[in-house]
């Protein structure tokens, strides 16, 4: 039954991804992506990575997508006239042929990597417990193990990433700040809509 669920979630996530690309309304795009993330979180869970599933929901779905929604609504994009042809009319544009080719190339390469690699666990191993990796004996649980690694071996990247977050916070504030007259660097009128 878990297998069937996996395939269902996989199909749904693909459909949602396609929806991200093809839908017109930006909010529809965001919601579609959100749905895709939920499906992926389920898949993570099924594969035994509970911590990641939680992180995915909390951070990706709960923070990043919310941020996207905020910005869209801030800029009032939904009410703007349609920016472009969407839907299948996307493919009528000039570059679309090359795009499809490149994307297809990427897909094929990925598949080829999978197919060609001898180490791929193409079949489940005979002695693998039906519950997946949870029942692997002698190993710490996922969260415990990850904490041990994170604050042990990967302490430096962890600290670096925290610095990165700090820098980002500062950068975002600076970038999105409405320009005061004294701070104006380039000539030009300020944004029409008052978006403080």
């Amino acid at each position: 039954m878990a297998n069937a669920l996996f395939y269902l979630m996989a199909a749904l996530s693909v459909v949602a991804a396609v929806g991200v690309v093809l839908l017109r309304n930006p909010i529809a795009n965001v919601l579609s992506l959100l749905f895709s993330f939920f499906c992926l979180a389920t898949i993570y869970l099924l594969a035994g990575f509970q911590f990641l599933a939680a992180a995915q929901i909390l951070v990706y779905a709960g923070a990043i997508m919310v941020l996207f929604l905020f910005v869209i609504m801030l800029l009032n994009l939904a009410s703007l006239p349609a920016l472009e042809d969407t839907g299948l009319a996307l493919f009528a544009r000039g570059r679309s042929g090359v795009t499809v080719v490149v994307a297809a190339a990427l897909l094929c390469l990925g598949l080829a990597a999978v197919v060609g690699s001898p180490a791929t666990a193409a079949q489940t191993l005979a002695d693998m417990p039906p519950d997946g990796i949870d029942a692997i004996k002698g190993t710490p649980g996922l969260t415990e193990g990850m904490a041990g690694e994170m604050f042990g071996r990967y302490l430096l990247p962890f600290e670096a990433v925290s610095m990165l977050l700090l820098a980002t916070a500062v950068a975002v504030v600076v970038l999105a700040k409405r320009n005061r007259p004294g701070l104006e660097v380039r000539a030009g009128r300020d944004a029409g809509s008052d978006v403080s």
């Binding site: 570059r95 090359v98 795009t99 490149v102 190339a105 990427l106 390469l109």
Partner: peptide, 8 residues
Amino acid sequence: LWMGASVA
């Protein structure tokens, strides 16, 4: 697009 092609 160029970047994608290069990656491929």
